[in-house]
């Protein structure tokens, strides 16, 4: 929005002109949607808690998440250890809290990466058409020809077993989704009045894409981001569940569930349950937030 405000005096675009009115109605619309659907409000509350864990996790965790203490191994949840302890006597509550940063971090970085890659190539495909469109479309189709989680496995296996590569793999499998949305939105605006006006005032195509088209499709892309956040978290946790990327003893929800899996059959449910529940709740929270945000920005696509 800042960028848009700067170019406002030079180029007459329809968005800045109607900006104050639109924002006012956006706010009241947001209030209306949250009032109509209190679930979004609850999801936002959950999001604040998860974000707090991600930011302050190591500070507010009651124990050291890595400190093992065999004397207190495999203890059920109690007043001392709310979520119990694992096979090495580590406090599960602390580990779950600290893990939030890594899990959300992977998801945020991968979504940001695909937002840039998919968004830019999608906009270019939709705006320029022709060869650009065909190449981007072909890449997206090829990615979609794989079962996505399987492709992510293959990518991590090929690039090397690190957290960075999990971020890259998660970004790649989300690429078609972003490229398609960006392409469709840019294609609609290709010959819009404000684009023609900008072209007539002597702007280059690249400049039009960056200053006119991109800011205009931003809201839809942001909704897309929040809709795919949950999926990115699930995907990353799934990869670490099968032993890719994150290595023990690093606290991460997927790997903690994997460590607890062996104890489920002997009745120590708390080792896998709490990290799994944290994973589930945060994905649930992001999906609800994404739906809520979509209702605010793009009410027509409501299902």
């Amino acid at each position: 929005m800042n960028k848009l405000a700067q170019v406002e005096p030079v180029e007459a675009t329809p968005v800045p002109v109607s900006k104050p009115a639109r924002q006012g109605s956006l706010f009241s619309h947001a209030r209306y949607v949250i009032g109509e659907n209190p679930v979004t409000g609850i999801a936002f509350g959950m999001f604040v808690i998860i974000a707090a864990c991600a930011i302050f996790g190591p500070l507010i965790a009651p124990y050291d998440p890595l400190a093992s203490n065999t004397a207190s191994a495999l203890q059920a949840p109690s007043a001392k250890h709310w979520f119990g302890t694992d096979q090495l006597g580590r406090d599960i509550l602390s580990r779950v809290m600290v893990a939030a940063r890594l899990d959300l971090g992977i998801a945020i970085f991968s979504v940001a990466l695909v937002f840039v890659m998919g968004g830019l190539s999608g906009v270019a495909a939709g705006f320029f058409g022709g060869w650009t469109d065909r190449i981007v479309g072909r890449i997206a189709d090829t990615i979609m020809a794989f079962p996505l989680f399987v492709l992510a496995m293959g990518i991590v296996a090929a690039l090397g077993n690190t957290v960075t590569n999990i971020v890259i793999a998660t970004a790649i499998i989300n690429f078609p989704l972003y490229a398609r949305v960006a392409r469709a939105e840019a294609n609609v605006r290709r010959d819009a009045g404000f684009v023609q006006a900008a072209r007539l005032s002597g702007n280059s195509d690249v400049r039009i894409v960056l200053t006119q088209v991109l800011p205009n499709i931003m809201p839809i892309m942001v909704v897309q981001m929040s809709l795919t956040m949950g999926y990115a978290i699930l995907n990353a946790a799934g990869l670490s569940f099968i032993g890719l990327g994150v290595r023990p003893p690093t606290p991460e929800w997927g790997i903690m569930v994997a460590e607890g899996a062996g104890f489920i059959v002997s009745g120590e449910w708390w080792i896998a349950l709490f990290p799994g529940a944290a994973l589930m709740l945060s994905v649930f929270c992001f999906n609800l937030l994404g739906d809520g945000l979509r209702d605010i920005v793009d009410p027509q696509r409501r299902t």
């Binding site: 949950g230 997927g254 569930v257 349950l273 799994g276 589930m280 994905v283």
Partner: peptide
Amino acid sequence: GVSLPVFFTGLL
């Protein structure tokens, strides 16, 4: 349903 990690459902 889309929020459930499939490995977690299985373990439960």
